[in-house]
Nucleic acid binder design. Sequence first.
RNA 1: GCGAGAGUGGCGAAACUGGCAUACGCACUGGACUUAGGAUCCAGCUCCCCGUAAGGGAUUGGGGGUUCAAAUCCCCCCUCUCGCACCA
Length: 863
Amino acid sequence: MEKEYRPESVELKWHKIWDQNRLFQVEEDPGKEKYYLLEMFPYPSGNIHMGHVRNYAIGDVVARYKRMRGFNVLHPMGWDAFGMPAENAAIAHKVHPAEWTYQNIDTMRSQLKRLGFSYDWDRELATCAPEYYRWEQWLFVKMFEKGMVYRKKASVNWCETCQTVLANEQVEAGLCWRCSEVVLQKELPQWFFRITDYAEDLLEYCERLPGWPDKVVTMQRNWIGKSVGAEIHFPLENGDGHIPVFTTRQDTVFGATFMVMAPEHPLVMQLASGTGQEEEVRAFVERMWTQDKTKRTSDDYEKEGVFVGAYCINPFTKWQMPIYTANFALMEYGTGAVMAVPAHDQRDFEFARKYGLDIVVVIQPEGQTLEPETMTEAYVDEGILVRSEPFDGLENLKALEAIADYLEEKQMGKRAVNFRLRDWGISRQRYWGAPIPIVYCDKCGVVPVPENDLPVLLPEDAEMLEGGKSPLLTLESFVKTSCPKCGDTGASRETDTMDTFVESSWYFERYCSPGHGDGMFDQEAVGYWMPVDQYIGGIEHAILHLLYSRYFTRVLKDFGLVTYKEPFTRLLTQGMVCKETQKCPEHGFLYPEDVVEQGENGTCRECASPVEVGRIEKMSKSKRNVVDPNALIEQYGADTLRLFCLFAAPPERDLDWSDQGVEGAYRFLKRVWRLVEEHLADVTGVRPFDGDALPHGDLKTLHRKTHQTIKRVTNDIDARFHFNTAISAVMELVNTIQASKKEVLLSSEGAPVLRLALETVTILLSPIVPHLSQELWEALGNPESVLDVSWPTYSEEALAEDEILIVIQVNGKVRSRFSIAADADEEAIKAAALADDRVVERIADRPLRKVIVVQNKLVNIVV
RNA sequence: GCGAGAGUGGCGAAACUGGCAUACGCACUGGACUUAGGAUCCAGCUCCCCGUAAGGGAUUGGGGGUUCAAAUCCCCCCUCUCGCACCA
């Protein structure tokens, strides 16, 4: 063993040995309990960043720990390899996206290997490989046959910069989630997955995900957005059918005085034609169409609309209701038409006031009489129905039911449930994705590509076009094809590719049998490994990826391919890695090297303005506050980096980066190294303490600390995933060893206790800093890999204290403390407490009111 | 606006079921070893006040409550972060 800790040589040495012995490769073993640990796979963007390091360090601790607990652990890694950055880079650097992607994969794989993560690299996959995406195409065809996908011309979210359609989930506050450009609406034929068919089930199972953070479950529940209400039919005045309306407030239907339709509603122009309102309506609709949707739908935006020139009839009151089209009605929600009840809906109220429409109160709060003339806002709370014969006098909550019954009875409508969730639009007008396996034939129409013709290969000879327009559109060798049904040679291929979230919706199943050539996966392997026991990744995927994956799993179940509905039993969403930013008023965010003199007095190198520091933000290139893992690995080694990421904060919380903290982590590892190195000669050939009789005195204290540490670390890792406290527990043990007197440790009685303590430190740290632990383990003379050592256990006997420190409180304030034999009974403790000098002094001659004794902890004396 | 989470020393944080608040680390201060130290080791380190000292007082965003006992439970308020947001 070297005297100095030199991380690089230690780490590279063990990588080689682990690799040669194929220590991380696993197979199904029905005799062993499985544990599937999965971290969200990365997009191969170029280099591993600190967020990856944190994510995968957390995962690796759990994987290694579970393995030491005897589980058969599946811990795979792969690449979410399709996507737009590859294309954009390709355009910018004139390389093919495939080349760019595979190069990045090579770089990032070696970085992950350098960090010593225990992945079974034999299972590595990249979603851009035809042997991967062919099965996705296969499933698409199956779903097509079953009507689970459909094509529809739809108004879709369009990002001009990215030249593609975005799913609703990819629009954040009206901006593209990737480039933050304003999202426009565009009419295009699109492919959709019928995720809404599963809305109810996805929602219901939100209750059955106890291993998921509440936050994520709540977000999913809100996203699915179930509303229970009724659909009511409002007949058109001209007798030309009716307008269906969805409402959750059918109890207010007697107060519906007008109707509002979304500008996109197909009936709007139809109703307006020939009424004299046509021109005005057209102008309004067109203005809405081109208007930026965020603005139009933002909360503080003023409500506006126009009368379409037609009327419908309130089926309950028989009133004539003018029909308006207005900016606040949304085509995507409900039926795109709203019955407006101005007295009891704030939006309708504002609209009615603006356009002078009737306001009729139909719900009166108890002990109050609302008058439309004096109301300043809508009354939306509970009350009693009025002007609603035959429902007058009913509480409105009861009226909801009564009116729903009445609707169904009279066939004026029905009970209805509406979801906020939309079908998943998966068409992307980009090149670097899995082609949608569809052919369009003049005679046969839309024809799926037969199984035998799969995969539809993404052609590699495509030239990337400026502006990101898909080259597939004009690539004749791709587009021109023959119809699989009738053989007609004039057929053409679908040129859209699939949303990359489709690939990430089933990769975890593919890992179970990554080379499987006869289907999406080997069902037996999936039966053994799935579901994922622990999934770890960023909170940013709380809705998108996790909801899609839950949906996809249900589809697979309906095809009989899997037996479960929920793919991820437990979920851990780790926090972001953040760091202080430095900002110049002139030049914006600055790199640390562009700031003269760090800290409060920093100035900009360019313009010498004082630099604003202090805002801690998520590490990002644009904020110029990233820290490169590579540089740190080079300086301190992988173990230090891993240790810091785990020690600085509990996993679910954001981590504030601290260069000094990294230094501290390194210092600790050096101390551990030295500790073992210094005592190596003393414990060589000594067996770790396992005697029946416990050691005495100082040795007993150390021995107890060893067992306490095992208990704490085990609990922290296993039950709580609190690696930061696990590490501090080991630090305490190290401190205790160091503080123990040398002459005690080195007695013949002491050496085995010392050895046990040193080995315990080594083993407990091994999931966290595997290289260092492995090296120390070997130096201590243990031949086997630290990976396969069983996790240590503690004994209650060793934990037991001879004496217990009892705290004495007087009136709830700590006044004194004393030690007493651990087996002392309540009376003895009470007597000892009351006899304590300082207590006696405190109490003086005041009478005792009460004495509370908490066994093993404290005595509270109330006077 | 609705929903979720959080607020503890100079900083990251700990306190698991109500029972010694501030473990562990960072920064800082003093000392030792040293040609030197940015290496290492030892000691100190919540705040304020009174006191030479022993000791005492206050303190978990603010206010109130329950309790022998509250960072922890209940009520009101403030601040921050995240998600959704004209959802009929």
